[in-house]
Design a binder for these strands. Structure first.
Lengths: 237, 237
DNA sequence: AATTGTAAAATTGGATACAATATCCATCAT
DNA sequence: ATGATGGATATTGTATCCAATTTTACAATT
């Protein structure tokens, strides 16, 4: 009797706790708005974020804005310079390269853990995303679907913390990646690699899948860093 | 003349010192204090952090405390429950295992990148830390030196972002690791593994070093999760 | 006696106002 | 033109107030 009640209590608690987290407070909402703005390119790299201005546009006071700043800084999206303001962090070619160097071992780890857990449904979902991406080549949504595909492969790993880190890393390079993604040839090449990768997952061939994923991420990194390096070349005076 | 100037310099330096301290803003200082408190075990897992109480003890207002909360939450050290307060996050055995699963690929990546860059000085420094750790077996400082050794191996990689991620991961498991580190047999075993690892680095044998490091981290993870699992067994009345 | 309902206290969330400090920028003298 | 100076601007931090929510305590009902 009592044990049953205790079990129910434990179950309910686990259901309620994440629910409480979902109560979004103003700082969280502001942080989400700013994050979206940064990721969608509405707020550009290097732009300074003025507390009062943002507070006015969001219709809130400065306090939630400042708390949002702290959160975004911890995520690496902005950088707070004391008494000078917060600026959207801009990454150098070297820093982008470092992020890709981190992504390779982390994403392959996620994939390794995921493949044994992949169900037919998981594979179907990933395939559906790829088909969707084919039809969205022109629009800006392709980049989003690109990540959705990757995320759908890692989800079966059931490692929330690892996935959160990957999402964060992706967000940090996403703004820059858009510059490269515009090329249609890259999209088609990437889609082909995705299909190869998905096939390897379907065959449960972990080593092949990992090798493909490694090459895929490294290629994207090379493309992006090359682009950034040439953009950085023209030195002022 | 010169003495006068030197005196002025000294005076100016004394004026500048508090200025340098001001480089860190109050929320950052509060965050550091809380982080230290959590890492050193002064603030225990599950404990709720009351804004007003902390503001009073630090002699500041609630606002910097709240900003510090946001920062620490992003680091994973605390969790903010809206309207209910912030609590020091406690990790389950599964969550600790996930963190170790992440550490392995990341730390080995750092090591791979570091070994080619290691100078004789780097190796000497690492060896010195090991010798120091031998003499600090009893004290609580051993855990600190344990990480210092690892960090000294990764530093030559010159990947600031990667190192920051590793520091954060280490901080998250550190509190729990202390429970295991108390065993003297573990310390001696760990030290032996460290010396093997250092030797491999000295030989620039990347694959051997990576294999040793992988085993070393996985063993620590196994030890800790096993401990936590048995601690979690006894269910609270 | 146990459960339910309600009111009050405590705590957090947020806004406004104000003081202090640092930075930026235009002006001025050399 | 160059560098210093002072004010404008922006950020930081604090205090005070009120709203919202949670928790606690107490009363009421069954």
């Amino acid at each position: 009797m009592e044990t049953k009640q205790e079990l129910q209590q434990a179950e309910l608690n686990e259901l309620v706790l994440p629910e409480l987290k979902n109560f979004k407070t103003t700082p969280t909402l502001v942080a989400e708005a700013l994050r979206n703005g940064i990721l969608k390119g509405v707020i550009r790299s290097g732009q300074t974020l003025r507390q009062e201005e943002l507070a006015a546009t969001f219709g809130v006071s400065r306090i939630p804005v400042r708390e949002a700043f702290r959160q975004l800084e911890a995520e690496g999206l902005i950088k707070i310079y004391p008494h000078r303001g917060a600026v959207v962090s801009s990454l150098s070619a070297f820093e982008v390269q470092e992020l890709f160097e981190i992504r390779v071992p982390l994403e392959t780890t996620a994939l390794r853990l995921a493949i044994p857990n992949m169900t037919v449904l998981d594979l179907q979902k990933a395939a559906r995303i790829l088909d969707l991406a084919d039809r969205e080549e022109a629009s800006g949504r392709w980049g989003e679907l690109n990540w959705d595909f990757h995320a759908s492969l890692y989800a079966p790993a059931a490692r929330p913390r690892l996935l959160a880190m990957l999402v964060n890393l992706e967000q940090n390079v996403d703004r820059y990646m858009r510059l490269v993604l515009t090329g249609l040839d890259y999209q088609q090449h990437s889609q082909a690699e995705h299909r190869e990768l998905l096939a390897a997952c379907r065959d449960k061939d972990i080593e092949k899948a990992v090798a493909l994923l490694t090459g895929h991420i490294e290629a994207a990194g090379q493309k992006l860093t090359a682009y950034l390096r040439q953009s950085e070349e023209p030195k002022p005076v």
